[in-house]
């Protein structure tokens, strides 16, 4: 190929690269909200045109109106607060238990043999199946809900912590020993950071379990909370409040996920996928 030809080809490649580089510069901030907004628009249009019976499914505007009604009476905020508190309490307690169990069983072979069979058996029970028993044990007080969340949240974190610690590269641990790290420093500088990605997967997963458990528990046995608000609304055929409760769960779930992602960005900034995203 002559020089002119290869130069032309080079130009072609440069142009293609320019074109490709130009595309990701498009503002993608609002793209994730395209489908939620479209959905709301169709829903509202359907209600306005009379295709959807408002007694079966109220229009988004009606739901929006119920937000004002309920927040003015303070009912919404009180229920939201109670639900978040329960979720948080259960998550912290269950997460801590899972984390500690994971540490101990991953570190000690004896403890693993002692505990693993029991934990695996306990794990296979769908924790929501405990609900009737839990109501008998704790009544419909706070303990019942928190207990159920603890049961649900514990295992994803336990399993991922255990797996994370066990899968830390033993060559890195050897290296740490050669470079003079003691037992405690090995944990702090090599084992925990190495297990952290896996632990955070457990955290994200258990956040999903947390909301699901809360919905069920509050719907069956509660006198406050969003789940209670929903089941109460069902008794009185207030479909707008029922829909609102469901939307609130979606919102809270998304919020928890955003939080978990923030933690990942913060703690796992060294991972290649975040480095690429940053550059």
């Amino acid at each position: 190929m002559d020089a002119a030809g290869s130069a032309a080809l080079g130009d072609g490649i440069a142009a293609k690269k320019l074109f490709r580089r130009a595309r990701p510069e498009m503002d993608t901030r609002f793209l994730p909200w395209f489908f939620p907004v479209l959905f709301l628009a169709i829903w509202q249009a359907g209600s306005a045109a009379g295709w959807i019976n408002s007694r079966v499914l109220p229009s988004p505007l009606e739901v929006f109106a119920s937000v004002f009604r309920l927040s003015e009476s303070g009912e919404l905020w009180e229920n939201l607060r109670v639900s978040c508190l329960r979720a948080g309490c259960g998550f912290v307690i269950g997460g801590s238990i899972g984390l500690l169990l994971g540490f101990f069983t991953a570190t000690s072979r004896q403890l693993e043999i002692l505990l693993d069979t029991s934990l695996q058996m306990f794990r296979t029970i769908p924790h929501l199946a405990l609900t009737p028993l839990v109501i008998i044990w704790f009544g419909i007080g706070e303990q019942a809900k928190i207990f159920l969340i603890v049961c649900g949240v514990m295992f994803p974190i336990y399993l991922n912590t255990f797996h994370g610690i066990r899968s830390v590269d033993p060559r890195l641990i050897d290296m740490g020993r050669v470079y003079g790290l003691g037992r405690r420093e090995l944990w702090r500088q090599i084992i925990l950071p190495g297990a952290l990605p896996s632990i955070l997967v457990g955290v994200r997963f258990s956040m999903g379990v947390m909301w699901m458990t809360l919905i069920v528990a509050e719907g069956i046995a509660a006198s406050s909370g969003i789940g209670y608000m929903a089941s109460n609304a069902r008794e009185m055929m207030q479909t707008d409040v029922m829909v609102l409760s469901i939307l609130l769960y979606a919102f809270l779930g998304k919020l928890a996920d955003v939080l978990a992602r923030r933690l990942e960005r913060l703690w796992l900034a060294w991972r290649p996928e975040f480095l690429r995203a940053a550059s």
């Binding site: 003079g180 090599i190 796992l268 991972r271």
Partner: peptide, 17 residues
């Protein structure tokens, strides 16, 4: 293998221990 700790910066890898 380099056996660098991916979660530490280059400097902190070198000052390990």
């Amino acid at each position: 293998e380099d056996r660098l700790l991916p979660w530490k910066t280059v400097l902190h890898n070198v000052s390990l221990g």
